[in-house]
Amino acid sequence: MGALAGVRPRAVRSFRLDRRYLPVLGTLVVLVLMLAVGGGRYDGFVSGRVISNLFLNNAHLVVLAVGMTFVILTGGIDLSVGAVVALSGIVAAVSFQAGLPAAVVIPLVVLVGSVIGLLVGVMVHVFGVQPFVASLAAMFLARGLCYVLAPESVPIRDESFVALSSWSVQFGDGWRVTSAVVIALVTLAVAVWVLQRTRFGRTVYAIGGGEQSARLMGLPVARTTVLVYVVSGTCAGIGGLLFAMYSRSGYSLTGVGMELDAIAAVVIGGTLLTGGTGFVAGSLLGVLVLGLIQTIITFEGTLSSWWTRIVIGALVLVFVVLQRGLMGRRTT
């Protein structure tokens, strides 16, 4: 104790400064614990192959969670992303079937997401519709359009697209990075930069801190609110693309409930649903936690996969309660 006394004031100060990072740190601790427990229980759990697959299988979810983080930071919610994933996958498959080149299809698919996001944003901002309701409407719209375009699963056989999706780099003992993982991580990096270092990003935080205040501070609240949904929609478009690369098809039932996974990942990643506090990096950790739960249950072998859902539910609950505690202390 005596030896520690000298450094204590500094430690206390940095702890106070880092309070905003506490939830993210909590998620990181959970992730490390899960890895440790898994590694202790199963052979070959903490290996390049398992961790690479974690990223591979969840690349689309990472992108969705990134977009969702923007929306939730402003205090909104976007329920349409799962349906947009399906829609953009189908648009990709149908366009390829019609013989369009990948160079046209890929931007088109992302644009579909942006347009639906814009729609939600306009409904939320211009018509003052609750984000929940506006994005619910967009969800039904996108899902409905899926069936209009193609009720059955449509395979993707375009050569350049297949080539892109099967591109991967192997290194070390079982480590593998695919194009999807690269795209997801680049999206993440861009999102971190936008949120932390641009006016748009800081305005997103300010709106989450208090929309009325942001308005009185003279910040472009209207534009930012709309843009946030465009970002989320665009991310959903990219996510749809990644999912299409993963499944090499477009199917109208893809991504049912995926928006809820994205929201769960964001919440577990330490972003407050009331807005204003949270980090994109936390959402990445959230996605990894979700993926790891699945992996553990697969490794366990005897458990039904529905246990994944139960564990996720319990975890979300624990994190929300923890955040409440944190918020409570802040207000006093």
Partner: peptide, 15 residues
């Protein structure tokens, strides 16, 4: 009417 979740510097300079 400021954003309590941002830093002092950001609150002064935002925009």
């Amino acid at each position: 009417n400021l954003a309590p979740n941002l830093t002092v510097a950001e609150n002064i300079m935002l925009g």
